[in-house]
Nucleic acid binder design. Structure first.
Lengths: 239, 239
DNA sequence: CGCGACCTTGAAGGTTGTCAACGGGCGTGG
DNA sequence: CCACGCCCGTTGACAACCTTCAAGGTCGCG
């Protein structure tokens, strides 16, 4: 049946199709600062939820009832093995999707790192809504592709980088999302354990690496969770 | 301008939108065995290319001119650092997308592992086509979400698994895509170096691990690239 | 003030990487 | 037909990086 549909479509030419112009061009959505968290329609369609720091938004392996959009705050998506090993797949920030998956269950748990505000969209209505609104479709697609690009970076980090490089990259990642200017302190928000679980290391190795950076003058620490990085390119060469 | 569009949409209710039913329901596309490689429309819209084993389809950092769909064969997507470290992000099989990214350049190179057949879609027409055909949209979306789920598995593998677990999982991955029944030999197609670069190990460690599996009776080897795994659950517990 | 969570540091050990040598399969060319 | 070279895979010895285990320190909060 689906095969038939495709066969019919085979006759169409892309030029014919492009006759009906979408509501907004892809470049509008993808290139600009426009984010899912700014979309009023989604707020209307879903239910807004707030989660306090360290509380869990949803649990790995539960039925994937909702799709979430981060409005405010920061979250971590983590996986646990049966024997207790923990891996953080992703830090999520405003505009990011959570629980975008092809499976019927959540492939990871999500916990609030800071106070968190999200929109919860029941999966069925999310599918319908996204499919039917061209502008939203583009934005969701761009968001998911960005997530894919980011996770490919993480794969490189986990597979082929030294501890120093991993910690350096995590600092850069966190700095990027807190809009930190070089020279200004980064407010880490996450614990050493979070950095470790994101980068496939242990807490001790993260701590030692940060201490080494401090000794070498590559970073300065104000509190335990406030770090100044004068020059990120110096961290990069910390192999 | 985009903001305006979203504001207007804010007034709409999902129920209104669902009035216009899409060409086929999501479940049709997502659940069935239907794959992008079976879609005749794409063959019509794009150009079919064949790549011999070990040749490169496209290079990391080149302009992302095309979107590719694997029709036949197997490919590897790999990243190289400036100092020569290599990481395979993904093995691609029929139905998989290659070069799905939000960036304007390819985030990895793709090389044919076996003889490879792909459809090359110029990016602009791919965007238009996918956006305007509901059925295709669902299928592309499901394919990308599946890729995301798979890469999350790889993150767990790279971040928190031992060498033995990694190699075991790669064997399972390859077996899955060659439709191998337990007891039947798996035709690896990939080299030890590929397994190593996928799982963040070295060739030597992969080789040693396979030898250990052989000694422990967990696998049997016919040729160097043909392996019999009597019981995958035994490999899983190889921690 | 004391407790607990988090962070740091040290010492020892293990898993994996590095370097090196060897073996087998295969294609090429004498 | 066989010899040679090359690529790939295996194995060993050793070193390095990171983990593990353990102890102590800092900070915030009741």
């Amino acid at each position: 049946m689906l095969q038939t549909a495709f066969s019919q479509m085979g006759e169409l030419q892309p030029t014919e199709l492009s006759g009906e112009a979408p509501a907004c061009r892809q470049s509008d959505c993808a290139a600009s600062a426009c984010r899912l968290s700014d979309c009023k329609m989604l707020r209307a369609a879903g239910q807004t939820r707030t989660v306090s720091a360290r509380d869990t938004l949803f649990w790995q392996d539960d039925d994937a009832e909702f799709l979430f959009i981060v409005i405010k705050g920061m979250a971590r998506a983590c996986r646990l093995t049966s024997d207790g090993r923990r891996q953080i797949n992703r830090f999520a920030f405003p505009g990011d999707l959570l629980a975008a998956t092809n499976a019927g269950f959540y492939p990871y748990s999500v916990e609030a790192v800071t106070g968190l505000e999200v929109i919860a969209l029941p999966r069925a209505s999310a599918d319908t809504l996204i499919d039917q609104v061209a502008c939203l479709r583009k934005l969701v697609s761009a968001t998911i592709l960005k997530e894919l690009d980011e996770v490919h970076d993480q794969v490189m980090l986990l597979g082929r980088m030294t501890a120093a490089e991993r910690v350096g990259h995590v600092l850069a990642l966190l700095a990027k999302h807190t809009q930190t200017v070089p020279g200004q302190p980064i407010d880490l928000a996450v614990s050493r354990a979070d950095i470790a679980d994101y980068s496939g290391l242990t807490v001790e190795t993260v701590s030692r690496t940060l201490s080494r950076f401090k000794r070498e003058g590559k970073i300065r620490m104000l509190g335990q969770r406030e770090i100044i990085v004068p020059d990120f390119s110096e961290l990069a060469e910390a192999a």
